[in-house]
């Protein structure tokens, strides 16, 4: 027994993020929302492709984000963007992955550019005679996050009416392989962000997977 750590005052915890939900909500999601005003202020951001906007988010996380940048710079938590991600398929690679070794926790974030409540947010489509998985379906069919229990989708709304897009997508998401508490979660925001909701789904291996859906209004 280490006497030193036994004597630390607990109120009630010694560590800042005592469980993965706290880690996700108070660090990861808070950092995503903190980045919003800086991303939105980038000149010409609305005309950029999805990957370029995602790269701006990565840059913000690593260098400008007061909530999370120190964690990455001190290698307490690791960030991998698409070209560094190690997944089963080289064509289906996660947009962002945040890994906390201390929590033994991995968090995948899928990014999407949206101009309306597109079906590809939820599932794939047939392209050149071949079905291509897309959107949250990648979490449910275990293309992404096979060993994780939570993930997020971060969408960049570059056209249309954001509140309408979010509410329409919320309905579509709730209908896609929902778990028993999906309806309750659909009413919950992510860290009180207006353009957000939550969902949970039953994956192909039977596990329940919780998803945080966040939207940047870049219109």
């Amino acid at each position: 027994m280490n006497l030193f750590y036994q004597n630390i005052p607990r109120h009630p915890f010694v560590v800042k993020f005592p469980d993965t939900q706290t880690l996700i909500e108070r660090l990861y999601l808070a950092a995503i929302l903190d980045a919003y005003t800086r991303i939105r202020a980038i000149s010409g951001i609305v005309g950029l492709m999805e990957n370029k906007i995602r790269n701006e988010v990565v840059r913000d996380f690593k260098f400008n984000n007061p909530i999370i940048k120190e964690y990455f710079q001190s290698k307490t938590i690791y960030l991998a963007s698409e070209n560094q991600a190690n997944t089963a398929s080289l064509e289906q690679r996660t947009d962002l992955e945040i890994h906390s070794g201390h929590h033994q926790h991995n968090f995948v974030i899928e990014c999407k550019n949206l101009t309306h409540a597109e079906n590809r947010y939820v599932q794939g489509r047939i392209k050149n005679g071949e079905y291509r998985h897309d959107g949250l379906e990648k979490f449910v069919d275990l293309t992404y996050a096979e060993t994780d229990d939570e993930g997020a989708m971060l969408s960049f709304i570059v056209n249309g009416t954001p509140t309408l897009i979010v509410s329409t997508l919320n309905q579509k998401v709730q209908a896609f392989k929902p778990s028993s508490d999906c309806a309750n979660l659909s009413l919950q925001k992510c860290v009180e962000w207006d353009l957000s909701f939550q969902s949970s789904h039953i994956c192909t291996n039977g596990k329940v997977f919780r998803l945080y859906h966040l939207f940047y209004d870049l219109t």
Partner: peptide
């Protein structure tokens, strides 16, 4: 210092079994 501090965080978490 960065490497040592991360190592110590690991010890703290193990010793306090602080994570749920």
């Amino acid at each position: 210092a960065i490497a040592d501090a991360n190592e110590e965080v690991k010890t703290m978490i193990q010793e306090t079994q602080a994570l749920a």
